[in-house]
Design a protein around this nucleic acid. Structure first.
Lengths: 230, 230
DNA sequence: CAGTGGTCTAGACCACGGT
DNA sequence: CCGTGGTCTAGACCACTGT
């Protein structure tokens, strides 16, 4: 461990924590002390420690110092891609298939999510995502027409609604919820599975400049797994 | 926007991106130029841009400069807590209930995960996590006895196996997988739900110093949702 | 009040990788 | 080759918070 990069130092300190040099809950040496020990600038130690704090290994407070966490927080970092890329990255051709496109009054729970006035209509889209011609996932989407008026005329032959929106309104914020539900008859038929099968679902509501754009629920058939590093 | 903190600058640049000042895929001004514009040191701009790169909004390459991402990567950050804290943080008393504790030969897929020799035994634990006396989740766990020999005598009356392990071997690495499955008869009975109900599952394999410690699958009853910020 | 982390600065050198 | 981001440094001031 002769290097004095923030990465090397971070790794080193991580090892010292996992090897038990400092007990859980114990106060670690301060930045100045560590900088002295590693023979580097305090800034460098600061960055190394900041990384470990981000990873949930340590807890830092002004005046109180740096402590090893009693119970480390496991942070799962998921990278949610556009479904097209998710499919294509496994070397399989992708195609979206639009099942429904109509403007309608959204049910109450959707209207609430999109913050719609009562009686206001929204665009309702249902799509199957095909991987090599086979159903990969089904999505049920509602779009706030005020937020994306051009979507009425958008062509969804080759490009999915999601990707169209991402390109029109990139860089938005969103909340995501994962859950499970049983397949009802219509979804079972669409995904070509049995009614009652357990589906993995992803529900996402997207915002831009405090305006609610779209809310979508994606249903993945049995066998789908969402993996996470660290 | 008179502040010149890395946060303020990061926000400002974020806004300039979302407002379309630089098109997706376009090259942004370099660090020196931005530093000049904001009247701050290059280091500060660097940190601001690094944050945006971490968030998946921009892409940075030496010599090539900084580009706005064509399709932003959505990163969902999940904080996986110990179940006890997950329950107690909603103000409800927690209690684990141990259903099974025996050493046995693990089925093939488990043995593979724990990298066990063929025929080697492992500790099998089944636990129900009770929130206010009601079943909150069910977990099925296998522990590599070599990695944690003391577990044979550990008392699991008040503390769950997971928490015992976290305290004995904190700061380990893990892989996580989320999926959905149908409840079989025994799980349905344990969780007090109907057979066939869709369960949300979390599967985690834990490592420490390249040694495989434990693999666990946690089953959450219908209604459970995993939320994520950003 | 005093000590710790949080941050900014100005300058420097380095590493990568496009041209 | 040489411009861009990546990083380190030494020093400074600030903000929070435990005592």
């Amino acid at each position: 461990m002769t290097e004095r990069t923030h990465q090397a130092i971070s790794h080193s300190i991580r090892n010292r924590i996992t090897s038990g040099e400092w007990a859980p809950g114990a106060v670690m040496p301060g930045e100045i002390e560590l900088a002295d020990e590693y023979g580097c600038a305090r800034t460098t130690v600061n960055r190394a420690l900041r990384t470990l704090a981000d990873d949930g290994l340590i807890e830092r407070k002004r005046r109180a110092g740096t402590r090893v966490r009693e119970i480390p927080i496991r942070k799962a970092k998921l990278e949610i891609q556009v479904i097209r890329l998710e499919i294509e990255s496994s070397g399989v051709p992708y195609r979206p298939h639009l099942l429904l496109r109509q403007t309608a009054r959204a049910p109450a729970h959707i209207a609430a999510r999109l913050n719609l006035q009562s009686g206001e209509e929204a665009l309702h889209l249902q799509t199957v995502h095909l991987a090599d011609g086979r159903a990969y996932a089904y999505e049920d989407r509602w779009v706030n027409i005020h937020a994306a008026p051009d979507i009425i005329d958008a062509p969804f032959d080759e490009i999915s609604a999601n990707e169209w929106l991402v390109r029109q309104i990139p860089y938005s914020d969103c909340d995501i919820e994962f859950a499970a539900c049983n397949a009802d008859a219509s979804i079972a038929q669409i995904l070509n599975i049995a009614e009652g099968d357990a589906l993995f679902t992803l529900e996402r509501t997207t915002r831009h400049n405090n305006e609610l754009i779209t809310t979508v629920k994606i249903y993945y058939p049995p066998g789908y797994k969402l993996r996470s590093g660290l």
